[in-house]
Each structure stands twice: as structure tokens, then as C-alpha cells.
Design a protein around this nucleic acid. Structure first.
Lengths: 415, 415
DNA sequence: GGTATTAAATCTAGGAACTAGATTTATTAA
DNA sequence: TTAATAAATCTAGTTCCTAGATTTAATACC
């Protein structure tokens, strides 16, 4: 077979058209040539040429029984092409401090399988971390009945700043380096996968942008708040990164009056309610019936909804604090919406009310909306999957699903 | 003449090549075809074709006496093409609260003329503002002996947030709307110029990025500080804008402990030294020889360099405050460098020392560098010019310098 | 001054990708 | 069976590019 020698320029044209046609088909029903002509503005000859290319590369296939689909009647039946969502899979991993959870999805983001494992303890070694991570991903793939070669990209979220090269290095915080012992390099070397690593709050923001509260917005902030707070900041559609991946780190809260730390909602709710229980304030509070160690954020917020005065006090304090945090972020960044996300978020409607009440003290109108994320503790995995799908979409032209992935290997970039 | 009907795709190729060749020539000596072949990777035929196009459109011309230039000896003499920096001009305007200053430059950013005018007072009407602005620009053009039709774009910096459409609207702050009474629309309607408006701190950041302390950096912040503070924030090469152009507004400083307002260095230096003079602290300070109203930032900083204790006290307070501001910004944004800019910046070396001393209290290493801008009060004009040149570079393919600008009109985008 | 050397320009042929429009084909409707 | 229809396929022609042969305008050397 003769080597094709299309020039860089003509290849660019073809690639742009491949992309346009494939993106048109990605999330839609099977389409006809005419559909593609209408939506891309290309001519029929080009459209079919491109579809032939895409078929050869395994992204789409021609649907046989054309008559079934459209409701038309006359004329020569159209050829129909369908995107193949199972042509490859992606893996999104939430690799937290205590456990790793991997989600395998098809190219449309439909979950095929999940798997989670715990680390032996918060002080686990880097070797254990990488090992457990690998096993978790492989287990999820097994559960999905997908061989590892079908994986197009693995995206992993970690609770640490991650620079544009996928690394967490040169920081003064050994915890951070422990959280990301060159995960991208490991996955690439051991398994041959393209691997991308990013900060968990950044991936949370991706989840919101994809199918959550950030949909359609160019400017919003996702506050991932559990034990600590991290922010995923989107400005003009771009995720802020910072010089070393540290954008959205919250140490600056130490400087905010009435805040003083980056403690998250889960921690504050637990600490403050347990403190309160130890004092003799609100002696009749039902929260006192729980073991002090058993009082967590959800218990407090539920109690607050039932007007438990102790819980209401705690909610009041947390809300007042978060109003200041939100105020500072919104003031500096001029953001349209702030999403409260993370495991405790789903029960923190009472906190949201306090924030909304206090916010006008700190920000000029128009005020940012305060929205509660629907993702619960799945948010980082969902964001990782979305980032992975985004990566695949961006790199379709480099990927040949039939002859095997091209350009696999260390692919640690994050944007 | 027959209408050329090159397809969208082939036109894209040609445009990319036009751009590549022109950008290669923009800041360089006249180049030969072979130079262009080497630097663009195109073939000779293409290169000369593109140069012919560029010549026809007025961007470049062929240099006659080829032998003069290079130091070569043998072989057929190369054709040489030179960029024409005077094929068009751009105007950068600093339209502040008290006065407007316009700078006319050629396409390489070399200043051809400047002109400045004052407004009648800080409370001038929008009509006056637009009128003075127009006259200032026209006067600068006259001084440069350039007819208004040769202007390719006018960029204006204002002390107000400006959204992506060039507008300042819907804010609660009437001062801001007064500062930008749809300047872009006015310049476009009255004079037919492409007009871009942006926030002054953002343009200051552009100046630093172009030829100042931000050169080569993807992450830095420019603090434009005179009477008030505004920040131009660059992350990953992008200027932060915010939903309504308010990114970099500093009201959040109200929430920072030990700061409490967005007052700038000029104001703090004046207020605090005048206050101190009114008390009986440091009775021997030479600053007391000045009329209290005559004490300004520069006087204070100069006195501090001479160890005047009163001035040293003021510098200490300002530095401590700015260390917190810098700490908050650097902590949230993970920025590599913070540039202190604006009129008082050039004399504030003593403040920089205090900031550097205090900063480790607030930020984890690696610490951002603190750098003092060299631009003085020219910074906004310089940034405006740079933004204008950037715009021209981006839009070369739409501009035909010979047959007149195409697509002129309201062009209020900012990015 | 004539000839070799050299570096660049110009010319010629050919390819990839696209558009446009005529022709053919596979259906449904009458 | 025939007409109408909608889409596919085929044919020609465009632009822009590359590759390589040929020509040209210099310098260098004898």
C-alpha cells in the first residue's frame, strides 16, 4: 500500500471536518448524509468521504435498516451513520485520601461499572497508593467486561494541587506529594494508558460544567467542601490553574476576617456541634442523644431543619462564615454562580439560606447565585469522566480505534 | 474581474499562512523567501504567493536593493520583503477620572505622538467625557500627521469594570457608568473606528505582559495602585474577566484582616502621613516642614529612604497591609509574580521590602516575586496600545490596508 | 572577459480536499 | 406500471499546496 502524503494544510482541513462531523453525531441519534450536510455546511461528497474515514477508524458505522429510523416516505433511502459509544471507554477516578473509586463509562459518559477500594490508612505509602489505584481501575474494567486496551484515557482526581504537567512537586506540603506520587507517569508506564491527573476541586467544577449547575455558564466557582475547602474556578470557560496548579487553594482564608482557616463544612459542623454538646448550652437539644463522635454534618443539618436550637446555632455560624468566603471569591472573581459541592453539600440547604441572607453585606449586586450540587460524593468521579471524554473529543483525529491507539504514553497535560 | 470563490476550507489554509508569514516579518528586518521557507516550513512557491498577497493588501513591500542587506555573496540575489510598520496606526487611550491621554503608534508600537486633556472636573457629564475623548484622539492624530482613516483600532482604558461587550452597565456604582458611557459605541459611530474598551488594571497587565515584568510569564498579577487598587490577573496567559468584567475588583479587601478597604498606595501614604503630622508623634520629622496638603506618596517614600521615622512608620503600615493583599491574591491564584504598578509605584521600593519581609507569614513557598513596574503613569496607555496591536495581529486577514478597512464598526469585544 | 559555482527564482506536474452540478438509483405514490 | 422524489454517485473543475526540474542573476576564479 502506498503511503499517503497529504500536506499539513490539507490534513488540517480534513481533521477539522472529521471533528465537526463526529461531534455532530456524538450525542445524537443516527444521522443521514443530508443531516450532516445541513449541520456542517459541507457538500455531500465531502460528508460521505468523512464518514467513510470515520467508519474506517471505528468511530461510527453505517446503519443497515435505514427505513426504521426517520419518518420519511419517498425518494431514495438515505444512508445512515451512527456513533459507536462503545468503540472505546474512559475511566474517571476519584483518588482521595482514604480511598480510590474508579468509574468506567462509554464514550457518551454512560456508566458501565464502578469499583472502589480503601487505602490501609491516611498515611499509606506512595507504592501502596499507586498499587491500589491500579487494582481499582482494573477491577472496574473487569466488572465492565472491558479489556484494558480499550481504555482511551484515565483521568484521576487527587486532593492536591496539580500542575500543567500532571505533577505535584516542589511544594512544602508532603501530604500533597503523597497524594500524587506521579500517578500519571505510573499509569502510563504500567498500563500504557494515556493518563491525566488533576486537582479534585477542578474536576468537581468540570462535573458541574458538564451536567450540573455550571451548564452553560462561563463564570462560576465550585466549592468542594468536606473536611477542607478547595475551589474549582471557571472564568470565561477556562479553569484556573495557577503557576503550579495551586489556583483555588484556600489558604488565603486564613486572612479573611471571621473565617481564619480552610476548614470545610463537614469539619466545622462536627467540631462546633461536638463542642456545643460539651458545654451546657441548649440542654434540651435532641442532638445530645447521639454519641458525640456520631454527630456529623448531616445530623446537624437535619436537626437544624427541625429547629433544634443547638444545630441552628452551628448552621448560623457556618453560614455566616461561608457568606464571607463566598463574598471574597465573588468580589474578586465576579462570578455568576457558586456551587456548594462535596459529600455534605446535599444536606446543607439551611446553610445556603444563611449565606444568601448575609451575602449582600459583602458583595455589590448583582449577587452570585448560591447553588447546591446534586452530585454528592460522586462529583469528582463524574468530573474525571467528563474531563476524560473532553480529552477524547479533542484528540479524536489522533486516535484510531481499529488499528489501536496512537500517541499513547505519558500524556500528563491537564488543560 | 471574476469573483474568487475559494472555499471556506482553502481560505482557512491561506489565512493561516498569511498570518504565519506576516507575524514572522512583523518585528524583524526585511526577510528573503528562503528565510520564510525556513521559519514557516512552507515551500518557496507558497511563500512567494503569500508575500504577493500581503503586498497587494499593503502589509509588506518588496525591498529593491537586495544586495545592501544580507552579507552573502554568491548566487542569484534573493527577493526581500519588508513589513510596513506605517501601513496603519493604532491608538491607545488612558481615559482616567481626571484626564484622557492618547498615544498614537505605528504597527510596531513605536510612538508617533501623544496628546492629553483634562476633564472639567471629577463630576463631568458623559457628553463631556466622550467629547474630550474624541478631541484628544484627534489631536494626537494631528500631531502624528496621520489622517483618521488610517487608524486600525482604538483601545481605551477606563477605571471601571468592563464586560466582554465593552460595556459597563447594570452596576450599582454610578461612578463606573460615568467612566464608561459606551465609549466603544461612541468612537465607532462618530469616527468609524474599531473601538475596544477595557478596565485600566487589565490594560496595565497587558503592558507588563508585552514589555514589562510579565514578559514570558503565564501567571502574574498587576496591582494598579494609585488612589485605589485594581488588579489585572493573568492565569495561563488569559486575562481574567469575570461575568460582568468585574474580576480584579478589590472590594473583597474589606474582608481581609488588617486591610479593610481597597485604598491604594497614594491614598494611604497621603492620609496616614497627614494624620501622623497632625499628631505629635515624631516631632523632629522633616516631613513636618511641608504643608500637610503637600505631602504625597513620593515625598513619604523618599523620606523613608532617608530614615525619617514618621515616613518609615507609614511605609511599615502600608507594606504590612500590602503583604496581606499580596498574600491573599497569591494564595488563591498561585501566581508567579506580582507587579506593583501605577503612578506611585516607581518610588515604592521601601514598601516592596516590607512586603517581602512579611509575605512568608501568609503564603507557602515558593513565594511570588514582588516587582515594581517601570511604566509609571504611562502604564495604561502602553497596555492599551499593546492590546490594540494584538487586536490588529489577530485580525490581519480581515484588514485590507489598500482598499480600506473591512468590517469596521462597533467592535467592542475585549478579549 | 569568459566560465564555473551558487543560491535563489521560476516553471511544470501532480496531489489532496473541496465545490458544483449532472446523472443515476432506490424508494413511495398514484 | 409509471411518475415523483430524495438521496447517492459520478464528473469536472477549483484552490492551495508540494516536489522537483529548469532557469536566472549574481559572485569567484582563471
Amino acid at each position: 500500500m502506498v503511503e499517503r502524503t497529504s500536506s499539513a494544510s490539507t490534513r488540517q482541513i480534513r481533521e477539522a471536518n472529521l471533528r465537526a462531523v463526529l461531534h455532530r453525531m456524538w450525542d445524537s441519534e443516527p444521522v443521514t448524509g443530508t443531516d450532516l450536510i445541513d449541520s456542517t455546511g459541507l457538500t455531500r461528497a465531502t460528508v460521505h468521504g468523512v464518514c467513510e474515514d470515520l467508519t474506517r477508524r471505528g468511530w461510527i458505522h453505517e446503519v443497515e435498516n435505514q427505513r426504521e429510523h426517520g419518518g420519511y416516505r419517498m425518494g431514495r433511502p438515505a444512508r445512515r451513520y451512527a456513533f459507536q459509544p462503545l468503540a472505546g471507554v474512559v475511566v474517571g477516578v476519584d483518588c482521595g485520601q482514604h480511598r480510590a473509586r474508579a468509574t468506567v463509562t462509554d464514550l457518551r459518559g454512560r456508566t458501565l461499572a464502578r469499583h472502589g477500594s480503601s487505602f490501609s490508612g491516611p498515611e499509606h505509602t506512595p507504592e501502596e497508593r499507586l498499587d491500589v489505584l491500579s487494582r481499582t481501575i482494573l477491577a472496574a474494567l473487569t466488572a465492565a467486561s472491558v479489556p484494558p486496551e480499550r481504555v482511551l484515557v484515565v483521568v484521576t482526581g487527587v486532593p492536591a494541587p496539580v500542575d500543567a504537567g500532571g505533577r505535584t512537586a516542589g511544594s512544602v506540603n508532603p501530604f500533597w506529594e503523597q497524594m500524587n506520587p506521579d500517578i500519571a507517569g505510573h499509569l502510563s508506564r504500567e498500563h500504557g494508558w494515556r493518563a491525566i491527573v488533576d486537582n479534585d476541586a477542578n474536576l468537581a467544577a468540570e462535573a458541574e460544567r458538564w451536567q450540573g449547575a455550571g451548564r452553560g455558564l462561563d463564570n462560576f466557582v465550585t466549592l468542594l467542601t468536606g473536611e477542607r475547602i478547595g475551589a474549582g474556578i471557571v472564568d470565561d470557560g477556562n479553569l484556573l490553574r495557577g503557576a503550579r496548579g495551586g489556583a483555588g487553594e484556600m489558604r488565603f482564608l486564613d486572612l479573611i476576617e471571621g473565617v481564619g482557616s480552610a476548614h470545610g463544612i463537614a469539619r466545622l459542623a462536627r467540631d462546633w456541634s461536638q463542642q456545643a454538646v460539651r458545654t451546657d448550652a441548649h440542654p434540651e437539644s435532641p442532638l445530645r442523644d447521639l454519641a458525640p463522635e456520631g454527630i456529623d454534618a448531616e445530623a446537624v443539618f437535619t436537626a437544624a431543619e427541625a429547629d433544634d436550637p443547638l444545630a441552628v446555632d452551628v448552621v448560623e455560624r457556618i453560614g455566616a462564615r461561608f457568606a464571607r468566603i463566598v463574598g471574597a471569591l465573588a468580589g474578586l472573581l465576579d462570578t455568576e454562580r457558586i456551587v456548594l459541592a462535596g459529600a455534605p453539600a446535599r444536606s446543607c440547604a439551611p446553610i445556603r439560606r444563611v449565606i444568601e441572607r448575609d451575602l449582600p453585606q459583602y458583595v455589590h449586586p448583582p449577587l452570585p447565585e448560591i447553588v447546591i450540587s446534586d452530585f454528592g460524593d460522586e462529583i469528582v468521579s463524574v468530573g474525571a469522566v467528563w474531563r476524560a471524554l473532553d480529552h477524547v473529543r479533542e484528540h479524536v483525529v489522533e486516535i484510531d480505534l481499529v488499528t489501536g491507539r496512537q500517541g499513547a504514553g505519558v500524556e500528563a497535560e491537564v488543560g
